[in-house]
Computed example of a mutant assay.
Amino acid sequence: MSDPKKQPNKPPKPSKRFRILLGLSLALNLLVVGAVVGVIVKGSPSNRGPSGVRETALPYVGAFELEDKRAMRQEMRARLPKRQETRAAMDAGYREFVEVVRSEPFDATRAAKVMEEQFERAGQFQRVGREVSIERISEMSPEKRAAYADRLEYRLDNPRKRKTRKER
């Protein structure tokens, strides 16, 4: 019959790559669950207001008059790469980062370079926005600059009393 000292065939141990992918998948799932729970508990990000860079820029941009905002938006579109190009480059960067993370051995220098390139693309939008804003303010008369400063100060002192989207 069977030898009692022999152990039955055990399934092979999963490869290191499979275990890493499983760990990443679990981490991503936990991140999604955490985000959903956060939205349920605190409300959506639109209910809490903007965050990060957008939060920093919002008072400056919001204090401009509607016609200034429209002109600045057109100027930024003229100076920046087309949206489709930017999105394609960002997507390619994200996918390259995924490849770097999955590669063995992990190349932290390359990962940092890919991430830095992504932040550079975002920074370009911020730089152009600052340039256009300062140019617009420089072109204002002293009276218009004073009115802009008043609107900015009001927004800073009354952050909850913002205009509705239709009024912007």
Results as ranks from 00 to 15, higher is better:
residue 155 R to V: 10
residue 8 P to I: 01
residue 137 I to S: 04
residue 53 V to E: 15
residue 9 N to T: 07
residue 96 E to P: 01
residue 140 M to N: 03
residue 92 A to Y: 01
residue 125 F to M: 08
residue 139 E to N: 12
residue 121 R to M: 10
residue 44 S to G: 12
residue 127 R to P: 01
residue 5 K to W: 02
residue 39 V to F: 11
residue 72 M to T: 04
residue 8 P to S: 09
residue 149 A to P: 00
residue 94 Y to I: 15
residue 71 A to V: 06
residue 24 L to V: 02
residue 8 P to A: 10
residue 168 R to W: 13
residue 66 L to F: 08
residue 57 A to E: 07
residue 17 R to K: 15
residue 44 S to L: 10
residue 67 E to N: 11
residue 25 S to K: 02
residue 121 R to W: 02
residue 91 D to E: 12
residue 78 A to N: 12
residue 95 R to F: 07
residue 70 R to Q: 15
residue 58 L to E: 15
residue 102 R to D: 00
residue 27 A to Q: 05
residue 70 R to E: 15
residue 102 R to K: 14
residue 77 R to A: 11
residue 82 K to V: 12
residue 105 P to M: 06
residue 99 E to N: 14
residue 14 P to W: 05
residue 163 K to F: 06
residue 55 E to T: 00
residue 76 M to R: 04
residue 45 P to C: 07
residue 48 R to Q: 15
residue 84 Q to W: 14
residue 92 A to N: 09
residue 133 S to R: 03
residue 149 A to V: 03
residue 113 K to I: 05
residue 161 K to F: 08
residue 136 R to G: 06
residue 123 G to C: 04
residue 10 K to Q: 14
residue 92 A to C: 04
residue 56 T to F: 15
residue 142 P to D: 15
residue 31 L to A: 13
residue 106 F to S: 07
residue 140 M to R: 01
residue 123 G to R: 02
residue 31 L to H: 06
residue 17 R to I: 05
residue 27 A to T: 11
residue 50 P to T: 14
residue 84 Q to C: 00
residue 62 G to V: 02
residue 167 E to N: 05
residue 117 E to I: 00
residue 142 P to I: 05
residue 143 E to A: 13
residue 4 P to L: 03
residue 36 V to L: 15
residue 132 V to R: 01
residue 128 V to P: 03
residue 98 V to D: 12
residue 137 I to K: 06
residue 27 A to S: 11
residue 63 A to V: 03
residue 77 R to L: 12
residue 81 P to E: 03
residue 81 P to R: 06
residue 87 R to D: 09
residue 65 E to H: 00
residue 7 Q to E: 10
residue 152 L to I: 04
residue 93 G to D: 08
residue 157 D to H: 01
residue 154 Y to M: 09
residue 133 S to K: 01
residue 64 F to N: 03
residue 4 P to R: 08
residue 31 L to S: 12
residue 135 E to N: 08
residue 109 T to P: 00
residue 133 S to D: 00
residue 31 L to G: 14
residue 105 P to D: 07
residue 41 V to F: 12
residue 9 N to E: 08
residue 29 N to Y: 03
residue 166 K to W: 10
